[in-house]
Design a protein around this nucleic acid. Structure first.
Lengths: 222, 222
DNA sequence: TGAATAGTGTCTTTCAGACAATATGCC
DNA sequence: GGCATATTGTCTGAAAGACACTATTCA
């Protein structure tokens, strides 16, 4: 290999989704340096020379949210020459799905400020991060239709109506309760975990997802 | 941005698919330098510092095959620390689909040797290129199920049985002629282009694909 | 018993998939 | 007429989607 080529910088950026306040939200950090100082941006940073890409993404995720063991998926690599005004930066975008109940510390970040934003009310974003989030939302919906990633947004035990709720949030659409439950249960990926207590109405069945279910399960066609 | 980070090299590698001799084939080049000298590898090369990723992929594709205006899609980025024994190299893999009839010159390459290989009879491959090809085959099948990319492997005008043929090759499976035609025509993405001549049997209808058809059309569930 | 949510069944329509006979053009 | 491939329709079973009533717990 000839060594006379200029090397770009390489970063990872992570679109961290969670369901909070009955909305689909994304975690953003406020930049404290130029360019785009004071603007909001995706959490991310340089890939270290001795670090795999997924390790870099996992590290950034932990630094921002303190969570581990979350769903993490490589999305797409954005590398337009002018996407960073300073120098050539290629970024590998990842998507993470976390159940907000798992987040211990919200401000556990070295960046000045971190906040959750509803996907429908994003602030002005640095770089091409708007494009990255739009892309990741498409991917998220696709994944909701064809896989079981939705359960990554829920705690270990959940009710059917909680599952339906996050589908309705992600697709911004109401589903029929009977058809939804029929479809979900027919997939044979859930197991009963007993009745939920402490509710002032008919108590629902709790479910958890079985181990080792196939990746593609075609939950919902929308 | 601090400038004290080490930069990896970044390349693009392209999985170029075509249907040839009733097989799904991939174009490979033989390496004439170490490491993996004499081994076969995916066509690819460094991303230039002033070149977008897709431009780099397009350029490499043209250098190897002489074709332009082909289907090109970014697949996935492979960046394991040890995937290149010399130094850190992150590669952005692309998939290209070409209709072999369009290839003008096969040996139009600066690499010592380029050859088509059946996907089922691949030689020993350099780096992690076997993994990349396996990944791209999965993506290709996925795309065949849910989109109209299959037509990128065909000339402008084609018969229904040619379409069925490439589906059978890609999925390595025989489909029922009546059901296939029924499904394909019901999608309403084809237009008739007249009757093919010069065949010594009942002449088939030629079709072309309409402009501006939606990306997701769910051609075949396999 | 009223409020709140859980849980459940039927009917209709659509579509995938199994299956084979006839049509056309060339020799 | 024989050969080669093109073209086409029906039936069945499964699943999607429309639709509403009963059940359970607590206050």
């Amino acid at each position: 290999m000839k060594d006379n080529h200029q090397r770009p910088s390489v970063t990872v950026d992570i679109v961290i989704f969670s369901i909070r306040e009955d909305e689909l939200q994304v975690l953003l950090v406020r930049r404290d340096i130029d360019p785009f100082k004071e603007k909001w941006a995706l959490p991310g940073g340089f890939v270290k020379i001795e670090e795999n890409l997924e390790e870099a993404a996992t590290r950034e995720l932990r630094e921002e949210t303190g969570v581990k063991d979350v769903y993490l998926e490589q999305l797409y690599t954005f590398g337009d020459v002018k996407r960073d005004p300073r120098e050539r930066v290629i970024t590998i975008a990842y998507m993470a799905l976390i159940n907000s109940e798992n987040i211990k510390v919200e401000g556990k970040t070295d960046v000045s400020d971190a906040r959750w934003f509803a996907i429908k009310k994003l602030p002005l974003l640095a770089f091409d991060h708007k494009k990255i989030i739009e892309y990741s939302l498409k991917r998220l919906m696709w994944k909701f239709e064809y896989t079981s990633v939705a359960f990554s947004l829920l705690p270990k035990e959940f009710t059917i109506s909680k599952v339906q709720k996050i589908y309705e949030i992600v697709f911004d659409k109401i589903f029929d309760k009977r058809n939804f439950a029929k479809k979900l249960l027919s997939l044979n990926v859930l197991e009963e975990k007993g009745i939920k207590k402490d509710v002032s109405h008919r108590p629902p069945m709790l479910y958890s997802i079985k181990k080792n279910i196939p990746k593609i399960i075609e939950i919902l066609k929308v």
